[in-house]
Structure formats: C-alpha cells, structure tokens
Design a protein around this nucleic acid. Structure first.
Lengths: 126, 126
DNA sequence: ATACTGTTATAATATGTATATAACAGCAAG
DNA sequence: CTTGCTGTTATATACATATTATAACAGTAT
C-alpha cells in the first residue's frame, strides 16, 4: 500500500494520513487483522515526524479503525459502531449535498457518482 | 435565517459560517439576489469578529456563492461552475464513502440517506 | 454631512500543526 | 538478562492558522 503525502496541500499531514489509511482499508489494500507499519517506520517511509504519525494512529484508534496490540503494534480492527457512523455520515452528506445543490448538480448525478466510486474503488461486502 | 456558531466545535468559526450559509442557500432560506447582513451586522448577530465574517464572505465569493455589490453588499449569486463542482464533489465523496464502507454501511443505505436529505432539506429545482 | 457598505492594514493573542530529543513500560527473541 | 522492537508520554521549539482589536479608506444611499 503506497501512501503519498502532499506537502503543498492545505490539508494537515496527519489528516491526509488518516484519510489514506481509511481509503486503504475501504479499497482492501489493508485487511482486518493486518498490522500497520510502526509509527517510526511509517514516519520514515512517508517522510514525516513520528509524532505526526502517532497523532494519526491515535485518531484512527479513537474512531474505531485500529486497535493497538502491545506485541503487534497498530492493527486494523473495525469497530463498526453503525449508529455513530450513520450520524457522522448524515452530517457530512448534508454539507456536501448543500454545496452540490447550489451548483445545480442533480440528485441523479450524485447517485450515479456514488455508484461509480463504490463499484470501482470500494471493497465489496454488501 | 438563524445561524448558530458552536464555539466548542473543532471546526473553524469561518468554516462553520460558510457551511451554514451554503446550507441556507440550498434550503432556500437565502434566495438568489438576496443580500446577506453586512459583515459588521452578521458579526454582532452571531457573536464573532468582523474579520472572521469577512473571511467567510471572501471564501464564499471566491467559491462562487456570493458577489459583492458596492451598493447592496454581499449578494447571493451562484456561479455554477459545474466542472469544478463535480471534481470537488468526487473528492469529498471518496473519503466519505471510504469511511462508510469500513463501517459496513451499504450502498443502498447511502442512496437512501441522500434521497432523504435531498427531499427533506434541499430546494427543488431538478 | 451622515451613516452605512466592503476592503485593507497592522498588531496582538490564541490555537493548531509539525518537528526534535528523550525517556518509559511492555513484549519477543537471542 | 540483554537487546531491540512496540506504543506512549513529556517537553521544547518553530511555524502556520485563526481570531480579535483598532483604525482607516473609498464608495454609496439618504
């Protein structure tokens, strides 16, 4: 799994790292039970500081994407708290849809784009 | 139109303001051609600084939601650059869908939620 | 002239981000 | 038991961003 950090982006480094790991899981490049590189190793690989990686891992742990095993390090372990995930999804989508609505993007176009992203990039389990 | 700022949120104040104005437009609480309160008045109303409001207005202007009329102040004026809007939408949705996918939220549940948000909150034009 | 617009400039403060160096406790393997 | 790897924590520093404050300017409407 290749992780690329854009140092010119206005998105925080730890945030980019979080998103890319989440997308990696969704795209099945990381599998449940698999260990991530250690904070020090990941830091060296992507060229950022250990603490920045640690912050990303901590957030992912708190959001239920990782668990920490003293022996094996950061392990992919999805805690599918669906209630909370649905609330967050609704909140995200409301802003996203509002923007799209203002720009005259139709509901159908959005549905179509979701199918396209889901079918091409997301692991299939449902 | 009631705008509420959450001072305990980790989202920047100007960002909250941007989002709420965009949602206000999408929900038809603000109409094309309507003037927003002046930066000073909006600042007083929601309890933040004039410059924070000015930043929000500047961003909205740059993103094509407002235009500035010397006489009438900040006026709702949608510049529907659909190409750019679609690119941004795709980028937003990719992260959002990845999160949802990890949490075992199905594609159907997302489609359903989008219909619900769109039908209940968004102005209908399509 | 007065009172509003948006805009700009400057400064001060607070918060968030990123890095550097160092240390600690838990665990595995030699 | 020592060595080397985990995550975690602490502290310090540098930098960027966010927020507020005070002030001024050029338009415009009344």
């Amino acid at each position: 799994m290749i992780i690329e950090i854009d140092f010119n982006s206005d998105e925080a480094l730890y945030q980019q790292l979080c998103n890319q790991i989440i997308m990696g899981i969704a795209m099945d490049h990381f599998h449940e039970g698999e260990s991530l590189p250690s904070v020090r190793q990941m830091a060296e690989t992507v060229g950022i500081n250990m603490h920045t990686v640690n912050k990303a891992y901590s957030i992912l742990k708190q959001q239920g994407f990782l668990q920490v095993d003293r022996r094996r390090g950061a392990v992919i372990a999805i805690d599918a708290d669906k209630m909370y995930a649905l609330e967050e999804l609704r909140s995200d989508l409301t802003v996203t849809l509002a923007k799209s609505c203002c720009k005259n993007i139709t509901k159908d176009e959005i549905h179509q784009m979701i199918d396209e992203i889901y079918d091409n990039y997301m692991r299939s389990f449902s």
